[in-house]
């Protein structure tokens, strides 16, 4: 059979998708994009990604000023300094401070990692 004849035969039997196929498909793509936007909060443009660690850092700084305004905890001579204020009194260990800083920086690193994963 000649090529042209087969071409004609196949052209005559062409089937098309149902009416509104392109609209349905583009809607599916739009829905996909919308869900992607909902899920992937862009870290570099999100206030939350910056605000949360800043709030934690602020709380930590505030706690230093309230409980250890002289920053005696940083004095290595005092391994177990006693913090006394008018309303609070407890022993603070240097490792407690290190742990607090580690938590904040860890939290920050985690948010940063999430951000880079979502925006990739």
């Amino acid at each position: 059979m000649e090529d042209q004849k087969i071409k004609k035969l196949l052209e005559d039997s062409v089937e098309g998708p149902s009416y509104g196929f392109s609209t349905k498909t583009i809607r599916k793509i739009e829905a996909l994009e919308a869900s992607k936007k909902r899920l992937s909060m862009k870290g570099n443009s999100s206030i939350v990604a910056y605000l949360i660690p800043l709030v934690f850092l602020g709380l930590l700084c505030a706690s230093f000023f309230l409980t250890d305004s002289q920053f005696s905890s940083y004095d290595f001579a005092f391994s177990i300094p006693e913090i006394k204020t008018s309303w609070i009194s407890f022993n603070i260990h240097f490792s407690w401070l290190v742990a607090s800083l580690a938590i904040v920086s860890g939290f920050w690193a985690w948010i940063w990692w999430e951000k880079s994963n979502l925006s990739a």
Partner: peptide, 28 residues
């Protein structure tokens, strides 16, 4: 490309509903 894509899927699968699903999935 909807016609060509649908037809290719239809000729392979030989089922209209499945071919339409495959065509849509291919575009997505």
């Amino acid at each position: 490309y909807e016609k060509q894509v649908f037809n290719l899927a239809f000729r392979i699968i030989k089922n209209r509903e499945d071919a339409e699903e495959v065509a849509q999935d291919s575009f997505v």
